[in-house]
Design a protein around this nucleic acid. Structure first.
Lengths: 271, 271
DNA sequence: AGACCAAATATGGTCAGACCATACATCCTG
DNA sequence: CAGGATGTATGGTCTGACCATATTTGGTCT
């Protein structure tokens, strides 16, 4: 019984893979960055000595990975432009693999818990006035995390990231107070926790967090409905926000842990 | 300023996107799982009323996301088969976005640190209640975490996951002792840390960890070369392994923290 | 001149058909 | 019955054509 390994163990690379490699190579060597345009499909095909369809397959892969975006027509924005949207790829990845039962909801939730706690502590530490004088740690505070412009990573919410993350957390809390139904509440809840992740200043974490929350959206709505009262959750949110704004990493982590225990009471086993 | 948002704000879906949706729908409704075959490209094209090239683009996307694998020829394994390899997608994602400077090495490393510590504590906790016996012993009871068959997620190392994760950790330590050069050492070091992640029993974490380590491979080799002596690292590895085998979450987390401080002494640098 | 409208053009999106490479299935032979 | 020759289904690739879209260009009218 072939466990695996049978899939293309050696096989000579397919044409589109060659194209993929050449484009990646060109990005690295020519120092192309976000916003730059790639040659047109026809031109690329001729340059690389392959058919246009192979070029298109390669571009499709790059688009899936959030590296390029194509636009028809003419002008500066037309053609394949280098972008930077790993978020969608992660979201698709989670959704599909959850559908295939390769991943369980439990695993996704656990991962979210891990990130949430780390991000809270990290965000608080980034905003802390001065280091607690702990030898052999934290050399030079690199740019106040919240200054980080994660805009290039935001998937479809362009408005975000214009203000400090802590401010957006406060706004999200207010919006949750005003929410009229669970779905709306969850929407702002996601914004709150996303802002929390951004406050930690790590774009990879933000992208993963966004994908996780997207995958858990429905689940979260059900949880809110089941809870009924969102007062406790809001108390938690306020406590988390305050701890981070105060730069108290310990309190932030503790507040998040409490919040998650409330939101995901059943430490349900696998599935 | 083109903040964003201009890219396909509404635009009617492209043919391959429709195909993608239909295939995903079919997976969900027909309850298809890993190992099942999809109809041939020509047949799919006819069923969905699109050209074969559109079907191929959709399949390319699914292949990129690690959901299908195609094989030419004839027989039971030919055609597009549902698989489960999110790992490659994550690896490609990281590599490309690192190349585009969308992500910095610092962010990747920080993420790795987060996962590593969480996994260590989690792995220890998973082994704590039931069998606090020695490592690589008593594969009897269905140990909560280590029993998890992550085999479906392993990218290209099919041999793994056959034995308890703690046993593989021990083997990796031995292999590192026998390593003759930094590259070889790092190879087994990756195996060690991957086994650690697997011991935590979360396939998503394992997939992410694998991608992170792949992205950091070169960086890790340089670090080992710079360090010169690997004795300290090995002491750490042994301490981590023991703490996990003993089910001591606190000690495991502490040991990992120490190890990482040693492996990544400085935290500047990016790119 | 300036404003406005029409044609040219560049670019991705899509399809149809052909042919090749691969690998199993089938059948024919000895 | 063994073993090779042939058949065939499947992905891989190329070519060429045409459509849709959006900018660029240029001409025309006021």
């Amino acid at each position: 019984m072939t466990t695996d390994e049978r899939r293309r163990p050696d096989a000579r690379p397919r044409a589109f893979e060659e194209v993929l490699a050449r484009i990646e190579e060109r990005i690295a060597s020519d120092g192309l960055t976000v916003g730059d345009r790639l040659p047109g499909e026809r031109q690329l095909a001729e340059q690389l000595g392959v058919g246009r369809s192979s070029v298109r397959e390669a571009l499709r892969v790059l688009e899936t990975l959030g590296v390029v975006a194509s636009q028809a027509g003419r002008g500066p924005d037309a053609g394949a432009v280098l972008t930077s949207r790993p978020g969608n790829a992660l979201t698709d990845l989670l959704r599909l693999h959850l559908g295939l039962a390769t991943l369980s909801m439990r695993e996704v939730i656990d991962t979210r818990l891990m990130i949430e706690q780390w991000a809270a502590a990290r965000a608080a530490a980034a905003l802390a006035p001065a280091a607690p004088a702990a030898a052999a740690s934290t050399p030079t505070a690199p740019a106040p995390a919240s200054t980080l412009t994660a805009s290039t990573l935001t998937a479809s919410t362009p408005a975000a990231s214009t203000r400090p993350a802590t401010a957006r957390m406060a706004e999200a809390i207010a919006a949750m107070d005003a929410a009229r139904d669970p779905a709306e509440f969850v929407e702002h809840d996601i914004a709150f926790h996303l802002a929390l992740a951004e406050a930690a200043g790590n774009r990879l974490i933000v992208a993963v967090m966004r994908a996780l929350r997207d995958a858990l959206r429905r689940y979260a709505v059900d949880a809110v409905v089941r809870l009924g009262d969102t007062g406790g959750l809001q108390d938690d949110h306020r406590r988390i926000h305050r701890a981070i704004a105060d730069g108290d990493a310990g309190a932030a982590a503790a507040a998040v842990a409490e919040h998650l225990a409330r939101a995901y009471p059943e430490s349900g086993r696998d599935s």
